[in-house]
Amino acid sequence: MKVSVGDVVLPGDFSEEIAAVGEKGKVILGPGLRKEVDGIYITKAGTLKKRAPNTFWVDNYQKRYIPARGENVIGIVVQKAGDIFRVDVGGSCTASLSYLSFEGATKKNRPKVVNGDVVYAKMLVASKDMEPEIVCVDSHGKKGRLGVLEDGFVFKCSLNLIRKILNPECPLLNSLKNEWPFELAAGMNGRIWIKANTMRETIALGNAILGSEYLSNDEIKSMCTNIASILAGHIS
């Protein structure tokens, strides 16, 4: 079936619109699109989206993470193997994290990372044929916000929810941060790490995030005020 931008698409549909743009200039095909000999075909079910000038992708529902280069992820260290740590990022195989890819790490000064630690890292190499590699430093050798996450609480959610809460237009985090202080790290692999002052606040934060998955922006705002008032009512 022929589809255009903004439509709900299913695998096997094709887009002549993208193919026409492709004849004139370069087109970037994102997830859910695939070039075949006779045109551009959809491979995932969702909404076909476009960002000017010529980037196209399909916004689909997904829970399983497929590693992609440059994304920030939350992983759990599962094994120490000589020079590298094996980190579970939720993909089909574990990612490798060199002990030298931490800020200020040298051969003599090894970072203190043990099995079970939660790390916030960036995907450096991600290809379907290779083991993914993650790093905890940026290209200047600085750690920025990356590194081992101390304490806190990690939970899983769908990949859509991560994209939703990280979207600048989503009011969730802006509403919540005014209510009580907390720290949050969202990995594109569907894991969220949160840390608040009390257990009660942590639970409230977690529930607020998970509850916002199917809500509209206005509903999210009212939910946040609601949760905050319940929280305040019990503490005082």
Binding site: L10, P11, G12, T43, A45, Q62
Partner: peptide, 11 residues
């Protein structure tokens, strides 16, 4: 399969 988000040639 559609819900899992696996890439497919067709439904």
């Amino acid at each position: 399969l559609l819900n899992a988000g696996l890439s497919m040639r067709h439904t």
